[in-house]
Amino acid sequence: MKNVKTSRQEIKNTAGNAMILNPRNYLPILGLALALLVPLIVTNSYYLGLINLVILFGAAGIAWNIVGGYARQVSLGHSIFFGIGAYTTTLLQIKFNISPWIGMFFGGVFAVLIGILMGMSVFRMKGHYFAVFTIAYSYVMMLLFQKFRGLTGGAEGLSVPFNDGSLAMFQFSSKVPYYYIFLLALVLIILLVQRLGKSRIGYYWTAIGQDEQAAMAIGINIAMAKHLALGISAFLTAILGSFYAQYVYFIEPFSMFSTHMSVEIALVAIVGGLGTVMGPVVGAIVVKPIAELTNMFLGNVLPGANYALYGLILIVAIIVIPNGLIVPINRLYQKLINRLERSSDRN
C-alpha cells in the first residue's frame, strides 16, 4: 500500500513542478557539474589517473551489466571484447595510420562478430557452464594473439605509435583530456542503458535473468534477446577497450585477454549492483581504489598480502550488501529527493 502511495505522489510531483525545479532532474545535473570540476580540484596526476580508470571501468561494468546483470548471463570473458577493441584500434593505427576515433568502431563491429560466434555455442550452456565457457574463449583469444605474432606482435605486445599528442589521434600528454573524454563516454553509456532498461528489450532481459521458462511462456525469443544483449555489451566494451589502449599506450595479450581483466570488469558490476544502471559506477568507485591502495601500501612490504586484503574486503562487501552497494545509496538518494520535494512544496 505504501508503495502505491509513493508512486502516486511521484506522478503528482513530476506534473506539479517545473522540470528544472524537480530534484529528480536537477540532482543528476548537479552531480555532472561537480564531476566536471574534478580535474580542477585533483591536480595530482597519480590520483587523476586513478579516477580515469574508475570512470573507464565503471563504464565497462555498465556494458557488462547488460548481459551479466540484466539477462544474468554471467560472463567471465569480457576481456575478449576489451582486448579486441584495444588491438583493433592499435593495429589500424600502426598499419594504416587510421585514427582511433574511426578504428574503435571497427573494433566494436569485430567484437560483435566474435560475440555472435561465442553466443551461438555458449548460450546453450546454463549457469556456471556459461561462465566457464566464456573463460575458455578468453584463453583461446589470448593464445591466438600470442601465436600470430606477424599480425599481433605476439607476446611482446604492441605500443601505440607516439605522435606528440592530438585530439584527432586521441592522444594527450595530460590526463585531463582523457578525464573529460572518459566522462563523456560514461554519461552516454548511462543514458543508453537507462533507455534500454525502460524499453521492451530491457524488460525482456530482466525477465530472462529471472526465469527463462516463464519468459518463453509470454513469447520472449530467448536466444535472440541474449544475442542482442551480448552484441550491445560487446560493442560498448570494445569501444572502452580502445580507450584503454589509447590511455596506457601499451597492450599485450597476456593481460588484455586475461581472466583477471574479465573478473575486474564483472566485479565492478557485481559489487555495485547487478542489473542496475548506476551500480557499476558505485562498484568502480569502491573496487578500483581499494585494489590500488592495497597495492600501494602492501604491494612492496608484503607482496601478495595486498590481493588477500583486496579479496577480503570484497567478500565482506558482498556478504553485508548482497544486492550491491547501490541499494543503500539509492535509499539515501530517495530520502534526499523526498526531503527536497517537501521543502519545495512548502515554498
Binding site: 530482466t206 525477465a207 529471472q210 516463464a214 518463453m216 509470454i218 513469447g219 520472449i220 530467448i222
Partner: peptide
Amino acid sequence: RTPDFVAQQGIGRTFQVTRPFGDMT
C-alpha cells in the same frame, strides 16, 4: 515449434509450480 512462437500465436499458459519474475514488481 518453440514456446515463444506458440505464445506469439496466442496460447498462454500458467505453471503448476508458480514462476514469477521474483525480483520484479
